[in-house]
């Protein structure tokens, strides 16, 4: 296939960067604990996209090879674990404070 401008690692990096930044902003601005959690997921996914891009043979002649995909796999599994724990924390927080607003989680303030 003849391409005008073949998709390169840089293009994937752009998408990854957008996801990362959006996730970061989400973490910063959302008041709902679960919204913050969703931001974390986006950030992780942005990072994953970079690993995949660097590991892809289609995008780069000298790629990371399998390593990129394997790391992405580990990230996905760890993200699942992180989500389980974070959700448990959020639910406990909700139980103890009857709110899900992270701005009100100020018990540990010095």
């Amino acid at each position: 296939m003849i391409g005008i401008s073949p998709v390169s690692v840089s293009h994937y990096l752009v998408v990854g960067a957008v996801l990362f930044v959006v996730g970061a902003i989400c973490m910063a601005t959302k008041r709902n604990a679960l919204g913050v959690l969703m931001g974390v997921e986006l950030v992780l996914n942005g990072a994953n996209l970079n690993f995949i891009a660097f590991g892809s043979k289609y995008l780069r002649a000298e790629s990371l090879g399998l390593d990129g995909q394997l790391i992405a796999l580990f990230v996905i599994v760890l993200a699942a674990a992180e989500a389980a724990v974070a959700l448990a924390i959020a639910l406990n927080f909700y139980n103890n404070h009857a709110t899900i607003d992270v701005d009100q989680a100020s018990e540990l303030k010095g």
Binding site: N95, H97, A98
Partner: peptide
């Protein structure tokens, strides 16, 4: 603390429903 437990015997909730 925003919460008031209705029943003093319940020391922990699973999920507040």
């Amino acid at each position: 603390m925003a919460t008031q437990l209705d029943d003093a015997r319940i020391i922990e909730f699973d999920v507040r429903t």
